[in-house]
């Protein structure tokens, strides 16, 4: 049984009249990648800042590695790494010096630090830029430096606060692959983003946040299973008869079936084998399939169903 790395219970944070976190609770298991998904201002960063004790909260309880987290929990802070939303490095230092400085806040031994810094540089692929100052780096390279500064001391718990904002697709993929590698190395990760594709790609569990509340949580499939929105299947298949249509209609999870201009349209509920089941029926009857499309519900659909608004509207 995996132990809880983070335990947040009934967290409330107010900024004057605004309730930033409204009785928010969450748990993160060891070795897990937890995604916090929500639009800007939904409370993701506030949650992280409260967990890290750099922001006071009004009520609630936060435990990290089973211990209460306070601003002076230096033993716990030693185990934590942070990759902030904005690139947080010194312009005056080179790439190497930046990573060495931030790693030095955790690791005093010079030799050990040197080894860790070089590993971090290799991990993010900045070997060719160690003597560059941040001002000379591209946006993607800066993001990589930002990550290296947060992970060089090999933390057991890492917070990634929207690390891919304004990053090109290639760098974004590199970052996501890096996060998966860190998990493989044993780190527990909290990942916030408003890019649902990223969350779907790397997170074991997702908490969807809106207005400071957790409106849904679970695995990606579990979340998609919570909504009514169906999978839309379209198959170009000539010569379909009524008997075949009724046979498809009898399948489990099928809501509606229609056929027009050689296109079969099927709306199905949540299920992993909907397309296969339909194709099996069509092939049994010797029909020739030309094109097959399947549109799965997205986390945006989940967000839409729970909040009545599009996740993308706030981006």
């Amino acid at each position: 049984m995996s132990s809880k790395v983070i335990s947040v219970d009934n967290l409330v944070k107010r900024y004057k009249e605004l309730i930033a976190l409204d009785h928010f609770s969450m748990d993160v298991d060891e070795g897990q990648i937890l995604g916090l998904l929500g639009p800007n201002g939904s409370g993701k960063s506030t949650t992280i800042n409260c967990i890290l004790s750099i922001l006071e909260f009004d009520s609630g309880d936060i435990k990290v590695f089973g211990k209460k987290m306070t601003p002076k929990s230096y033993d716990l802070k030693r185990l934590i790494g942070i990759v902030p939303q904005e690139v947080a490095v010194y312009d005056e230092f080179t790439v190497y010096e930046n990573i060495d400085f931030f790693c030095g806040l955790y690791i005093k031994d010079k030799e050990e630090r040197k080894k860790l810094v070089n590993e971090a540089i290799a991990f993010v692929g900045l070997q060719d830029f160690v003597k560059f100052k941040p001002g000379k780096l591209s946006g993607g390279l800066l993001r990589r430096l930002n990550i290296a500064c947060g992970i060089a001391h090999k933390p057991k718990l890492i917070f990634f606060d929207e690390p891919t904002v304004a990053v090109d697709p290639q760098s974004r993929n590199n970052i996501l692959e890096g996060i998966l590698k860190l998990r493989q190395g044993g780190a527990t990760i909290v990942y916030t983003s408003h890019y649902m594709e990223e969350i779907e790609q790397i997170c074991d569990r997702v908490i969807i946040m809106d207005k400071g509340q957790a409106i849904a949580s679970g695995t990606v499939d579990e979340l998609k299973g919570m909504i009514k929105k169906s999978e839309l299947i379209r198959i170009e298949v000539p010569g379909l008869d009524e008997d075949t249509l009724s046979k498809i209609n009898e399948l489990k999870n099928i809501y509606t079936v229609s056929y027009e201009d050689n296109i079969l349209k099927v709306e199905a509920g949540s299920g992993k084998h909907n397309v296969i089941d339909i194709i099996n029926i069509l092939q049994d009857r010797g029909l020739r399939l030309k094109k097959i499309f399947s549109e799965q519900p997205t986390l945006n659909d989940v967000f839409l169903e729970f909040t009545g608004k599009e996740l993308r509207d706030d981006l």
């Binding site: 750099i54 230096y74 942070i82 010194y90 312009d91 806040l105 500064c149």
Partner: peptide, 11 residues
């Protein structure tokens, strides 16, 4: 550069 975030969460 918001480096205070890093120094604040450091031990």
């Amino acid at each position: 550069r918001k480096v205070a975030m890093r120094t604040s969460v450091s031990p």
